[in-house]
Amino acid sequence: MNNVILEVKDLKMHFPIKIKTKSFISEKKYVKAVDGVSFSIHEGETLGLVGESGCGKSTTGKMIVKLLEPTEGSIRFRGKDVFKTQGEESKLLRKEVQIIFQDPYSSLDPRFTVGRTISEPLVVHKIGDEKTRKERAIKLMNDVGLMGEYFDRYPHEFSGGQRQRIGVARALALNPSLIVCDEPVSALDVSIQAQILNLMQELQAKYHLTYLFISHNLSVVKHICDRIAVMYLGKIVEIANKKDLFDNPKHPYTQALLSAIPIPDPEIIVEQEMLEGDVPSPVDPPSGCRFHTRCKNVMDICKKQEPKDLNMGEDHIVACHLYDNKED
């Protein structure tokens, strides 16, 4: 197994909010967007982080790149605590960890040309002179499938897929080791999604990159990821390598997600496991297992006690009372 490049332990992000009670008095509560998440990523691999909208995937990614500071927990990059680094050490860390945002329209400054957008990180970190920065930017544009003559064009002159290629090039500018991909293809047409995913795999091999790939689309995750972590209401309920997760899902939530993937063959009939009810509020999550309000296999213990992470073999981890005191 390759070296661990990123280790996330007991990560929490609680956003304070004020709620008015029936007596019109404001009461301070917290949105528990991320509530005790732990995982690790090995150098050179792609870890998928999947789940329904609002489960805390993007918030986790933003904490990893230091756009948000966690309420509790730690993030260690190459053994160093991300939120305890300061000064020059913190600056070096920011070079190593970059992000590709979900929306290729709002993530680019409309006042910046493509060339300036891609070379701006080099300016911020005082790398090279104007000539070498331009050469680097044009090389990255070619690497992501854009022509160098687009250097002086503005974002509004490009399609969605081209804009996301610009975002990828910007993320590569500082030659990072880890890139957080926050739903990088969800806003694109299906045919363009495939092009961007294939491009990301080519760049991963070329630049020896490690990805945290955040998505709600399991078909996309199956195409690009090595391991997958399934998240529900601020917690990870299952982690396994791609083959194990798709062939033998353990958690009822994972099983329901996988059953919802459409199969492009009208003769194959798959019985979908429909999840009943809505996702509970992260302000007041259910006691015990957070999934028990929608689970078909719910037991009394699920309502009272939070499940522990159980190793089902070959690093297949599941947090579910169904497997307590079982070998498999």
Results as ranks from 00 to 15, higher is better:
residue 204 Q to R: 15
residue 163 R to I: 11
residue 215 S to D: 11
residue 224 I to Q: 01
residue 164 Q to V: 11
residue 220 V to G: 06
residue 164 Q to N: 06
residue 206 K to Y: 12
residue 156 H to M: 08
residue 167 G to V: 10
residue 157 E to W: 06
residue 207 Y to T: 07
residue 179 I to H: 02
residue 186 S to V: 04
residue 196 I to A: 08
residue 193 Q to A: 01
residue 168 V to F: 05
residue 160 G to V: 00
residue 154 Y to T: 00
residue 209 L to H: 08
residue 179 I to R: 00
residue 208 H to G: 08
residue 212 L to R: 07
residue 210 T to K: 13
residue 157 E to K: 12
residue 170 R to C: 12
residue 179 I to Q: 03
residue 155 P to L: 01
residue 150 Y to N: 14
residue 197 L to H: 07
residue 204 Q to L: 10
residue 167 G to F: 10
residue 206 K to R: 15
residue 182 D to C: 07
residue 156 H to A: 09
residue 184 P to R: 06
residue 222 K to H: 15
residue 181 C to A: 11
residue 165 R to A: 05
residue 223 H to Y: 15
residue 210 T to D: 09
residue 164 Q to M: 08
residue 222 K to W: 11
residue 183 E to F: 10
residue 163 R to V: 11
residue 164 Q to E: 06
residue 204 Q to E: 10
residue 221 V to L: 09
residue 182 D to H: 06
residue 155 P to N: 03
residue 217 N to Q: 04
residue 190 V to Y: 04
residue 177 S to E: 15
residue 195 Q to Y: 05
residue 170 R to M: 13
residue 149 E to V: 02
residue 214 I to R: 10
residue 220 V to A: 07
residue 173 A to N: 02
residue 163 R to H: 03
residue 157 E to H: 12
residue 220 V to I: 12
residue 150 Y to W: 03
residue 185 V to E: 01
residue 220 V to D: 02
residue 167 G to E: 05
residue 205 A to N: 14
residue 185 V to D: 00
residue 206 K to Q: 14
residue 194 A to S: 10
residue 204 Q to F: 10
residue 205 A to V: 11
residue 183 E to N: 04
residue 226 D to G: 09
residue 198 N to Q: 11
residue 207 Y to K: 03
residue 203 L to T: 06
residue 181 C to D: 02
residue 178 L to P: 01
residue 189 D to Y: 08
residue 192 I to K: 00
residue 149 E to N: 15
residue 219 S to P: 04
residue 205 A to E: 15
residue 218 L to Q: 06
residue 213 F to D: 06
residue 162 Q to T: 05
residue 208 H to V: 03
residue 222 K to R: 15
residue 204 Q to H: 05
residue 203 L to Q: 01
residue 160 G to M: 00
residue 196 I to T: 09
residue 167 G to T: 08
residue 201 Q to M: 15
residue 223 H to F: 15
residue 165 R to G: 12
residue 197 L to W: 08
residue 178 L to H: 00
residue 183 E to V: 04
residue 202 E to H: 12
residue 210 T to C: 13
residue 193 Q to E: 09
residue 205 A to G: 04
residue 218 L to P: 05
residue 221 V to C: 13
residue 213 F to R: 04
residue 220 V to W: 02
residue 182 D to N: 10
residue 199 L to F: 14
residue 184 P to S: 09
residue 166 I to C: 07
residue 170 R to H: 14
residue 219 S to M: 01
residue 226 D to Y: 13
residue 158 F to Y: 07
residue 156 H to Q: 10
residue 169 A to E: 08
residue 214 I to Y: 11
residue 227 R to S: 13
residue 154 Y to D: 00
